[in-house]
Protein backbone atom coordinates (compact mmCIF):
# COMPACT_ATOMS: atom_id res chain seq x y z
CA UNK A 1 0.00 0.00 0.00
CA UNK A 2 1.50 3.31 -1.00
CA UNK A 3 1.77 6.23 1.37
CA UNK A 4 -0.89 8.23 -0.44
CA UNK A 5 -3.60 5.57 -0.21
CA UNK A 6 -2.70 4.90 3.42
CA UNK A 7 -3.09 8.60 4.19
CA UNK A 8 -6.38 8.67 2.32
CA UNK A 9 -7.69 5.66 4.22
CA UNK A 10 -6.66 7.13 7.56
CA UNK A 11 -8.33 10.41 6.66
CA UNK A 12 -11.52 8.59 5.64
CA UNK A 13 -11.59 6.49 8.80
CA UNK A 14 -10.96 9.39 11.13
CA UNK A 15 -13.51 11.62 9.39
CA UNK A 16 -16.07 8.84 9.73
CA UNK A 17 -15.55 8.65 13.49
CA UNK A 18 -15.52 12.43 13.78
CA UNK A 19 -18.76 12.77 11.79
CA UNK A 20 -20.42 10.07 13.89
CA UNK A 21 -19.44 11.90 17.04
CA UNK A 22 -20.63 15.28 15.67
CA UNK A 23 -23.93 13.71 14.64
CA UNK A 24 -24.52 12.45 18.15
CA UNK A 25 -23.36 15.68 19.75
CA UNK A 26 -25.33 18.00 17.48
CA UNK A 27 -27.56 20.32 19.51
CA UNK A 28 -30.36 20.37 16.95
CA UNK A 29 -32.11 17.52 15.19
CA UNK A 30 -31.79 19.23 11.82
CA UNK A 31 -28.03 19.53 12.23
CA UNK A 32 -27.81 15.88 13.27
CA UNK A 33 -29.71 14.77 10.16
CA UNK A 34 -27.50 16.79 7.82
CA UNK A 35 -24.39 15.36 9.47
CA UNK A 36 -25.89 11.88 9.24
CA UNK A 37 -26.37 12.30 5.49
CA UNK A 38 -22.75 13.38 5.18
CA UNK A 39 -21.80 10.33 7.25
CA UNK A 40 -23.66 8.10 4.79
CA UNK A 41 -21.86 9.61 1.80
CA UNK A 42 -18.48 9.15 3.45
CA UNK A 43 -19.46 5.59 4.35
CA UNK A 44 -20.16 4.95 0.67
CA UNK A 45 -16.60 6.09 -0.12
CA UNK A 46 -15.28 3.71 2.53
CA UNK A 47 -17.14 0.81 0.92
CA UNK A 48 -15.71 1.80 -2.44
CA UNK A 49 -12.21 1.77 -0.90
CA UNK A 50 -12.94 -1.71 0.43
CA UNK A 51 -13.61 -2.91 -3.15
CA UNK A 52 -17.33 -3.33 -2.49
CA UNK A 53 -18.92 -1.18 -5.21
CA UNK A 54 -22.34 -2.84 -4.80
CA UNK A 55 -22.53 -1.89 -1.16
CA UNK A 56 -21.13 1.57 -1.92
CA UNK A 57 -23.95 2.20 -4.41
CA UNK A 58 -26.59 0.96 -1.98
CA UNK A 59 -25.10 2.94 0.90
CA UNK A 60 -25.05 6.19 -1.07
CA UNK A 61 -28.62 5.71 -2.30
CA UNK A 62 -30.28 4.25 0.79
CA UNK A 63 -27.98 5.12 3.70
CA UNK A 64 -27.41 8.74 2.73
CA UNK A 65 -30.16 9.63 0.23
CA UNK A 66 -33.45 8.01 1.10
CA UNK A 67 -32.84 7.66 4.84
CA UNK A 68 -31.98 11.35 4.88
CA UNK A 69 -35.21 12.22 3.08
CA UNK A 70 -37.24 10.06 5.49
CA UNK A 71 -35.54 11.64 8.50
CA UNK A 72 -36.16 15.16 7.17
CA UNK A 73 -39.80 14.31 6.48
CA UNK A 74 -40.15 12.93 10.02
CA UNK A 75 -38.58 16.12 11.37
CA UNK A 76 -41.05 18.25 9.42
CA UNK A 77 -43.88 16.19 10.94
CA UNK A 78 -42.47 16.65 14.43
CA UNK A 79 -42.25 20.41 13.99
CA UNK A 80 -45.80 20.67 12.67
CA UNK A 81 -47.20 18.77 15.63
CA UNK A 82 -47.83 20.56 18.90
CA UNK A 83 -46.38 17.80 21.07
CA UNK A 84 -42.73 18.47 20.38
CA UNK A 85 -40.58 15.97 22.19
CA UNK A 86 -37.58 17.20 24.13
CA UNK A 87 -34.60 16.94 21.82
CA UNK A 88 -32.19 15.36 24.21
CA UNK A 89 -32.28 14.42 27.83
CA UNK A 90 -28.72 14.27 29.10
CA UNK A 91 -27.98 11.05 30.95
CA UNK A 92 -28.36 11.78 34.61
CA UNK A 93 -25.66 11.00 37.11
CA UNK A 94 -21.94 10.62 36.65
CA UNK A 95 -22.12 7.01 37.88
CA UNK A 96 -24.31 5.94 34.97
CA UNK A 97 -22.06 7.79 32.55
CA UNK A 98 -19.01 6.12 34.06
CA UNK A 99 -20.58 2.66 33.76
CA UNK A 100 -21.55 3.30 30.14
CA UNK A 101 -18.07 4.59 29.35
CA UNK A 102 -16.50 1.49 30.91
CA UNK A 103 -18.84 -0.77 28.94
CA UNK A 104 -17.93 1.01 25.70
CA UNK A 105 -14.22 0.75 26.54
CA UNK A 106 -14.59 -2.95 27.32
CA UNK A 107 -16.39 -3.57 24.03
CA UNK A 108 -13.74 -1.61 22.16
CA UNK A 109 -10.92 -3.65 23.74
CA UNK A 110 -12.72 -6.92 23.09
CA UNK A 111 -13.36 -6.07 19.44
CA UNK A 112 -9.79 -4.90 18.92
CA UNK A 113 -8.41 -8.14 20.37
CA UNK A 114 -10.82 -10.16 18.28
CA UNK A 115 -10.01 -8.29 15.07
CA UNK A 116 -6.26 -8.53 15.62
CA UNK A 117 -6.62 -12.28 16.04
CA UNK A 118 -8.54 -12.82 12.80
CA UNK A 119 -6.73 -14.92 10.18
CA UNK A 120 -5.21 -13.10 7.24
CA UNK A 121 -6.25 -13.36 4.47
CA UNK A 122 -9.71 -13.93 5.94
CA UNK A 123 -11.39 -17.22 5.05
CA UNK A 124 -14.35 -16.57 2.81
CA UNK A 125 -16.72 -18.36 0.52
CA UNK A 126 -15.64 -16.29 -2.50
CA UNK A 127 -13.44 -19.16 -3.64
CA UNK A 128 -16.48 -21.42 -3.76
CA UNK A 129 -18.74 -18.87 -5.46
CA UNK A 130 -16.58 -18.22 -8.54
CA UNK A 131 -16.29 -21.80 -9.87
CA UNK A 132 -20.07 -22.25 -9.53
CA UNK A 133 -21.07 -19.11 -11.41
CA UNK A 134 -21.61 -21.18 -14.56
CA UNK A 135 -24.38 -23.10 -12.83
CA UNK A 136 -25.96 -19.97 -11.37
CA UNK A 137 -28.43 -17.66 -13.05
CA UNK A 138 -26.14 -14.62 -12.97
CA UNK A 139 -22.51 -14.11 -13.86
CA UNK A 140 -21.90 -11.28 -11.36
CA UNK A 141 -20.87 -12.97 -8.10
CA UNK A 142 -22.82 -10.55 -5.86
CA UNK A 143 -26.03 -11.02 -7.83
CA UNK A 144 -25.46 -14.78 -7.89
CA UNK A 145 -25.14 -14.84 -4.10
CA UNK A 146 -28.14 -12.56 -3.55
CA UNK A 147 -30.49 -14.22 -6.01
CA UNK A 148 -29.27 -17.78 -6.29
CA UNK A 149 -26.98 -19.19 -3.60
CA UNK A 150 -28.61 -17.21 -0.79
CA UNK A 151 -31.83 -16.21 -2.53
CA UNK A 152 -33.75 -17.43 0.53
CA UNK A 153 -32.26 -14.58 2.59
CA UNK A 154 -33.12 -12.02 -0.07
CA UNK A 155 -36.70 -13.26 -0.31
CA UNK A 156 -37.16 -12.83 3.43
CA UNK A 157 -35.50 -9.41 3.35
CA UNK A 158 -38.10 -8.30 0.82
CA UNK A 159 -40.67 -9.57 3.30
CA UNK A 160 -39.03 -7.30 5.89
CA UNK A 161 -39.39 -4.35 3.48
CA UNK A 162 -43.10 -4.98 2.95
CA UNK A 163 -43.50 -5.48 6.69
CA UNK A 164 -41.91 -2.04 7.20
CA UNK A 165 -44.63 -0.46 5.06
CA UNK A 166 -47.40 -2.41 6.81
CA UNK A 167 -45.94 -1.40 10.18
CA UNK A 168 -45.60 2.28 9.22
CA UNK A 169 -49.12 2.45 7.79
CA UNK A 170 -50.59 0.68 10.82
CA UNK A 171 -49.58 3.74 12.85
CA UNK A 172 -51.93 5.94 10.85
CA UNK A 173 -51.46 8.39 8.02
CA UNK A 174 -49.49 11.53 8.46
CA UNK A 175 -49.64 14.87 6.66
CA UNK A 176 -47.73 15.02 3.41
CA UNK A 177 -44.70 17.16 4.20
CA UNK A 178 -44.20 19.39 1.16
CA UNK A 179 -46.51 22.39 1.35
CA UNK A 180 -43.85 25.06 0.80
CA UNK A 181 -42.03 23.82 -2.25
CA UNK A 182 -45.03 22.92 -4.37
CA UNK A 183 -45.22 24.92 -7.55
CA UNK A 184 -41.59 25.97 -7.71
CA UNK A 185 -41.03 26.24 -11.46
CA UNK A 186 -37.32 25.58 -11.25
CA UNK A 187 -37.87 22.34 -9.39
CA UNK A 188 -40.65 21.28 -11.73
CA UNK A 189 -38.50 21.97 -14.77
CA UNK A 190 -35.63 20.03 -13.26
CA UNK A 191 -37.84 17.07 -12.42
CA UNK A 192 -39.26 17.05 -15.97
CA UNK A 193 -35.73 16.73 -17.31
CA UNK A 194 -34.46 14.26 -14.72
CA UNK A 195 -37.38 11.85 -14.55
CA UNK A 196 -36.90 10.04 -17.88
CA UNK A 197 -33.20 9.64 -17.15
CA UNK A 198 -33.93 8.26 -13.68
CA UNK A 199 -36.31 5.64 -15.04
CA UNK A 200 -33.80 4.79 -17.76
CA UNK A 201 -30.96 4.40 -15.27
CA UNK A 202 -33.13 2.22 -13.04
CA UNK A 203 -33.78 -0.10 -15.98
CA UNK A 204 -30.11 -0.08 -16.89
CA UNK A 205 -29.06 -0.91 -13.31
CA UNK A 206 -31.37 -3.94 -13.16
CA UNK A 207 -30.12 -5.28 -16.47
CA UNK A 208 -26.50 -4.60 -15.55
CA UNK A 209 -26.85 -6.44 -12.23
CA UNK A 210 -26.66 -9.77 -14.08
CA UNK A 211 -22.98 -9.32 -14.88
CA UNK A 212 -21.63 -6.26 -13.03
CA UNK A 213 -22.27 -4.18 -9.88
CA UNK A 214 -25.89 -3.05 -9.90
CA UNK A 215 -29.21 -4.79 -9.47
CA UNK A 216 -32.63 -4.43 -7.95
CA UNK A 217 -31.67 -2.63 -4.74
CA UNK A 218 -29.79 0.13 -6.53
CA UNK A 219 -32.38 0.38 -9.30
CA UNK A 220 -35.22 0.47 -6.77
CA UNK A 221 -33.68 3.35 -4.88
CA UNK A 222 -33.17 5.35 -8.07
CA UNK A 223 -36.83 4.77 -8.89
CA UNK A 224 -37.81 5.81 -5.37
CA UNK A 225 -35.73 8.98 -5.62
CA UNK A 226 -37.50 9.84 -8.88
CA UNK A 227 -40.89 9.23 -7.26
CA UNK A 228 -40.10 11.36 -4.23
CA UNK A 229 -38.84 14.21 -6.46
CA UNK A 230 -42.11 13.97 -8.35
CA UNK A 231 -44.03 14.36 -5.10
CA UNK A 232 -41.80 17.19 -3.83
CA UNK A 233 -42.17 19.18 -7.04
CA UNK A 234 -45.93 18.96 -6.86
CA UNK A 235 -46.12 17.36 -10.31
CA UNK A 236 -47.26 14.07 -8.85
CA UNK A 237 -49.75 13.16 -6.17
CA UNK A 238 -49.16 10.39 -3.64
CA UNK A 239 -50.92 7.16 -4.54
CA UNK A 240 -53.89 5.97 -2.55
CA UNK A 241 -52.58 3.18 -0.34
CA UNK A 242 -56.09 2.08 0.54
CA UNK A 243 -56.64 0.82 -2.99
CA UNK A 244 -55.91 -2.89 -3.41
CA UNK A 245 -54.19 -2.34 -6.77
CA UNK A 246 -51.51 -0.11 -5.28
CA UNK A 247 -51.04 -2.51 -2.43
CA UNK A 248 -50.68 -5.40 -4.87
CA UNK A 249 -48.05 -3.42 -6.78
CA UNK A 250 -46.24 -2.70 -3.53
CA UNK A 251 -46.15 -6.41 -2.77
CA UNK A 252 -45.42 -7.46 -6.36
CA UNK A 253 -41.75 -8.26 -5.74
CA UNK A 254 -42.64 -10.49 -2.81
CA UNK A 255 -45.43 -12.17 -4.78
CA UNK A 256 -43.13 -12.93 -7.73
CA UNK A 257 -40.29 -14.15 -5.50
CA UNK A 258 -42.56 -16.35 -3.36
CA UNK A 259 -44.30 -17.55 -6.51
CA UNK A 260 -41.00 -18.63 -8.06
CA UNK A 261 -39.94 -20.34 -4.81
CA UNK A 262 -43.20 -22.24 -4.41
CA UNK A 263 -43.42 -22.92 -8.16
CA UNK A 264 -39.99 -24.53 -8.27
CA UNK A 265 -40.94 -26.49 -5.16
CA UNK A 266 -44.19 -27.75 -6.68
CA UNK A 267 -42.44 -28.73 -9.91
CA UNK A 268 -40.31 -31.04 -7.81
CA UNK A 269 -36.94 -29.33 -8.14
CA UNK A 270 -36.69 -27.91 -4.62
CA UNK A 271 -37.50 -24.34 -3.60
CA UNK A 272 -35.50 -21.69 -5.49
CA UNK A 273 -33.65 -24.32 -7.51
CA UNK A 274 -34.06 -22.65 -10.90
CA UNK A 275 -34.54 -25.16 -13.74
CA UNK A 276 -31.57 -25.37 -16.12
CA UNK A 277 -31.67 -22.63 -18.72
CA UNK A 278 -34.40 -20.64 -16.98
CA UNK A 279 -32.13 -19.23 -14.27
CA UNK A 280 -31.32 -15.97 -16.04
CA UNK A 281 -34.92 -15.27 -17.04
CA UNK A 282 -36.35 -16.07 -13.61
CA UNK A 283 -33.73 -13.96 -11.84
CA UNK A 284 -34.44 -11.05 -14.19
CA UNK A 285 -38.18 -11.37 -13.52
CA UNK A 286 -37.57 -11.45 -9.78
CA UNK A 287 -35.25 -8.45 -10.04
CA UNK A 288 -37.81 -6.42 -11.99
CA UNK A 289 -40.43 -7.20 -9.35
CA UNK A 290 -38.01 -6.33 -6.57
CA UNK A 291 -37.13 -3.02 -8.26
CA UNK A 292 -40.79 -2.03 -8.33
CA UNK A 293 -41.35 -3.16 -4.73
CA UNK A 294 -38.25 -1.43 -3.40
CA UNK A 295 -39.03 1.79 -5.25
CA UNK A 296 -42.66 1.86 -4.14
CA UNK A 297 -41.72 0.86 -0.58
CA UNK A 298 -39.58 3.94 -0.08
CA UNK A 299 -42.21 6.17 -1.66
CA UNK A 300 -44.83 4.55 0.57
CA UNK A 301 -42.73 5.11 3.68
CA UNK A 302 -42.24 8.74 2.63
CA UNK A 303 -45.78 9.60 1.62
CA UNK A 304 -47.81 7.50 4.05
CA UNK A 305 -50.86 5.37 3.35
CA UNK A 306 -52.98 8.19 2.09
CA UNK A 307 -52.62 11.86 1.42
CA UNK A 308 -53.90 13.65 4.49
CA UNK A 309 -55.62 16.27 2.33
CA UNK A 310 -57.38 13.54 0.39
CA UNK A 311 -58.48 11.87 3.57
CA UNK A 312 -60.18 15.04 4.79
CA UNK A 313 -62.18 15.40 1.62
Amino acid sequence: MSGVTLALDLLLGLSLVWLAWRTLASPTLFGAIVLFIAFGLLMALVWARLDAPDIALAEAAVGAGLTGVLLLAALADLQQGDNLLPVREPLRGWLLQLILALCALGLFTLLTLALLGLPSPPPSLAGQVLPRLDGAGASHPVTAVLLDFRAWDTLLEIAVLLLAVVAAWSLGSHPHPNPRIVGSEVLQGLVRVLLPFAVLSAGYLVWRGGFAPGGAFQAGTVLAAAGILLLLSGLGRPFNGRHWLWRALLASGLFIFTGVALGTLLLGGGALDYPAGLGYGLILAIELGLTLTIGLTFIALYAGEQDAAEERE
Binding site: L155, L156, A159, L162, L163, V166, R247, A251, L254, F255, T258, A261, L262, L265, A271
Partner: peptide
Protein backbone atom coordinates in the same frame (compact mmCIF):
# COMPACT_ATOMS: atom_id res chain seq x y z
CA UNK B 1 -40.21 -24.37 3.10
CA UNK B 2 -44.02 -24.12 3.17
CA UNK B 3 -44.00 -23.37 6.88
CA UNK B 4 -42.05 -20.17 6.23
CA UNK B 5 -43.35 -19.15 2.81
CA UNK B 6 -47.05 -19.79 3.38
CA UNK B 7 -47.35 -17.27 6.25
CA UNK B 8 -45.27 -14.76 4.23
CA UNK B 9 -47.59 -15.17 1.25
CA UNK B 10 -50.64 -14.94 3.50
CA UNK B 11 -49.28 -11.79 5.13
CA UNK B 12 -48.90 -10.13 1.73
CA UNK B 13 -52.37 -11.31 0.64
CA UNK B 14 -53.93 -10.11 3.89
CA UNK B 15 -52.34 -6.71 3.33
Amino acid sequence: VWLVLLPVLLAALLF
